[in-house]
Amino acid sequence: MATDVHGPVTAQPVTSQAVRVEGLTRSFDGRPVIDRLQLDVRQGEFVALLGRSGCGKSTLLRILAGLDRDIEGTVLVPRRKAVAFQAPRLMPWKKVWRNVLLGLPGKPERAVAERALAEVGLGDHADAWPKTLSGGEAQRASLARALVREPDLLLLDEPFGALDALTRIKAQRLVGELWQRRGCAVLLVTHDVEEAVLLADRVLVMDDGVIAHEQHIDLDRPRDITDPRFAELRAGLLERLGVDTAAEAA
């Protein structure tokens, strides 16, 4: 609990990689959930991580976030990284702008928080209590809290999972825009194949504790979900995940 999570998990010289994982193993009660996993993420790359529930994708994200250090193997991550969880996890006893600045070194100005909130479209909610925000607004505030740290690596753990369909589309678009503006590497853990194909440069499928499949997405941005190539990629990935797409097409 007292660990400095801003430091790299293992100190190593800087490379052009944003994430470098080699031979990572994480076991729960002797049963490996992540088993000698390899992963590289380039700087500024948007990577989506798919997988069935319980496949260890959230565990991997927690390890990269420095929240789980009960690991074997090499894990290199940037000093500046930020996480947005599935639940917004705002401190209910702090107003939104204080939540955004929480944990920043020094004494940051309120204007810093306001700028980050404006970037996610919450400029006029800086003085609100978290309880007054809607689900989508709270999630955007959580995103602002991650972005204000100017991360080189942004870790997103199913950040749209709890949102309703319309809010989710808006939030996905927002994340896409923010990523293009900031140019940070993003690792998005999700179980939504469409979301992965829509946002990522590269989609990884995790199974049995390793990266079982890799799919580069070369579609132009902004992407169109009605594009036949989009549907083809989506179908391919669904098949990888063990979902029978023929039944869906019928």
Binding site: M1, A2, T3, D4, V5, H6, A65, G66, L67, A82, V83, F85, A87, R89, M91, K94, L102, G103, L104, P105, R145, R149
Partner: peptide, 21 residues
């Protein structure tokens, strides 16, 4: 515990966690 974890991920020190969370 989720809020404590969020505080950790935001880089709060042990004392910061006690004070703010």
């Amino acid at each position: 515990s989720q809020l404590i974890e969020a505080g950790e991920s935001l880089g709060l020190s042990r004392w910061g966690l006690v004070r703010h969370v």
